[in-house]
């Protein structure tokens, strides 16, 4: 059973990637290609709907952050918060909690 992953783009101001569902090794590829679209322009990644993310997903975010400005949006009390904190993603990207 594959994980659900919804990628939505909106192009006003900064492109935005809205992700929901669970991201694990089974669908990490899709996540990564979604991140790589949009070239080197700044990107906002909305993870409020994500309920599972492992180190591979974090690695993909780090990679994207190297190419251009990255903003990561979390939901309040997101289970991903300790993950983001432990891996110091805030050092290379802007992390916002809605």
């Amino acid at each position: 059973m594959t994980t659900n992953l919804e990628l939505a783009r909106s192009d006003d101001e900064a492109p935005q990637l809205v992700v929901s569902g669970e991201i694990d090794l089974s669908n990490i590829g899709a996540f990564r290609s979604a991140l790589s679209e949009g070239g080197d322009s700044p990107l906002v990644v909305d993870l409020t709907g994500v309920t599972y993310l492992d180190s591979a997903g974090i690695a993909a975010l780090f990679e994207r952050a190297r190419r251009s400005d990255l903003e990561v949006v979390l939901g309040p009390g997101s289970v991903l918060a300790p993950l983001i904190e432990i891996t110091h993603l805030a050092d290379v990207a802007t992390v916002r909690t809605r």
Binding site: D54, S55, A56, I58, A59, F62, L83, I86, T87
Partner: peptide, 10 residues
């Protein structure tokens, strides 16, 4: 290994 390290840290 940064990734692996992250995994363990997580």
């Amino acid at each position: 290994s940064a990734d692996r390290g992250r995994g363990l840290a997580i």
